[in-house]
């Protein structure tokens, strides 16, 4: 499909600058990656409200806690691999436990980091963040949605983890369409099977749905941008109405979005299901497309998973 390719990070930078203009309580922290995460845009516009903490993510998270405890709305950015595991205790103790108004917007998540290799390709960040009480987890599907997510989370008082990628991603949502943080977005109506994606995999789900339609399969596509709190109602309704579910995420199949969906279905409405995602392994250096293919994140992988589910439906 001929989608426009756009950067999620660029929209993050733009949304932050707008928020900075609108609100004096917005402050931004980064750990020596501001030109990559695009918080540098905010730093240029509001230098007095931007604090570079150096390569010291633990210190950055606790500093954020002190700022939030003093009434600030704090955006903290770095690469996802450094903004989660490297400072997990700080996020747990000083952000999630006291439920402070901090938004961790982490870029360069997943294997689409590409050439940097496994050391920089976090495939377990959704898992780490979603098990933390009080923490919300959001994975925007594309660039316009990233903009809307940033604007929406700035209005909440809760800790939020927002995951974006490094690579430009296809624009599949309408910048003008209304956006509800708490509700999965119906991207395509369908009655035979439901494809649930998050992040860059939503576009792959749409392509898979089109491919399936050539075989007479009418697939529904949901964009599950908010993994916590989970829109259980929409998931269960989709399972009931289509009888089968495939999830797709650029994350380990262990304890990511697919696992969250699986648990909802096991407890509420049993249907055949298949998770598309990165197996329980570390990534490696390579081009995005090559990595997506090797680690099972292609349109074909989703189509195949859908056929498997359809077979088991009978």
């Amino acid at each position: 499909m001929a989608w426009k390719m756009e950067s999620q990070r660029k929209q993050y930078g733009k949304a932050l600058v707008e928020l900075g203009k609108e609100r004096g309580d917005i402050v931004v922290l980064d750990a020596d990656l501001s030109t990559s995460t695009r918080t540098a845009d905010f730093a240029a516009a509001f230098p007095e409200r931007f604090f570079n903490c150096g390569i010291a993510e633990q210190n950055m998270m606790d500093t954020a806690a002190g700022l939030a405890a003093s009434g600030k709305t704090v955006f903290v950015s770095t690469f996802a691999v450094f903004g989660t595991g490297r400072c997990y205790d700080q996020i747990r103790q000083s952000i999630a436990y006291p439920k402070l108004n901090i938004k961790i917007v982490a870029s360069h998540a997943g294997i689409t980091v590409g050439g940097d290799g496994a050391s920089h390709q976090i495939v377990e960040d959704i898992a780490l963040m979603r098990v933390l009480p009080n923490m919300n987890v959001i994975v925007p599907a594309d660039s316009p949605e990233t903009y809307k997510v940033i604007k929406a989370v700035a209005k909440t008082k809760d800790p939020v983890y927002v995951r974006v990628g490094r690579a430009d991603v296809p624009t599949i949502t309408d910048p003008e369409a209304p956006f509800d943080l708490n509700q999965a977005t119906l991207m395509r109506e369908g009655k035979d099977v439901t494809l649930i994606g998050c992040g860059i995999m939503v576009a792959k789900c749409l392509e898979a749905a089109q491919e399936l339609s050539k075989h007479g399969v009418d697939a529904r596509v949901l964009n599950l941008h908010t993994i916590k709190p989970l829109d259980e109602k929409t998931i269960v309704r989709a399972a009931r109405e289509t009888g089968g579910v495939v999830t797709a995420e650029e994350h380990s199949v262990m304890m990511g979005m697919g696992s969250a969906v699986a648990l909802v279905l096991v407890e509420n409405f049993h249907v055949p299901m298949k998770r598309v995602g990165i197996p329980d392994v570390f990534g490696e250096s390579g081009a995005c497309d090559e990595l997506m293919e090797k680690y099972g994140l292609t349109v074909d992988n989703i189509v195949e998973a859908a056929h498997d589910v359809l077979k088991r439906k009978k």
Binding site: V27, E48, R49, F51, Q58, N59, M61, D62, T63, A64, A65, G66, L67, A68, A69, S70, G71, K72, D89, Q90, R92, Q93, S94, Y97, P98
Partner: peptide, 25 residues
């Protein structure tokens, strides 16, 4: 209580955040 603590080594950074906020305001 101004900050939840217990896991050691966090309090000074949190205090710094408060000090930055005081300066900003």
């Amino acid at each position: 209580i101004e900050m939840s603590t217990g896991s050691l080594g966090h309090g000074l950074a949190a205090g710094n955040g408060m000090a930055l906020a005081a300066k900003l305001d």
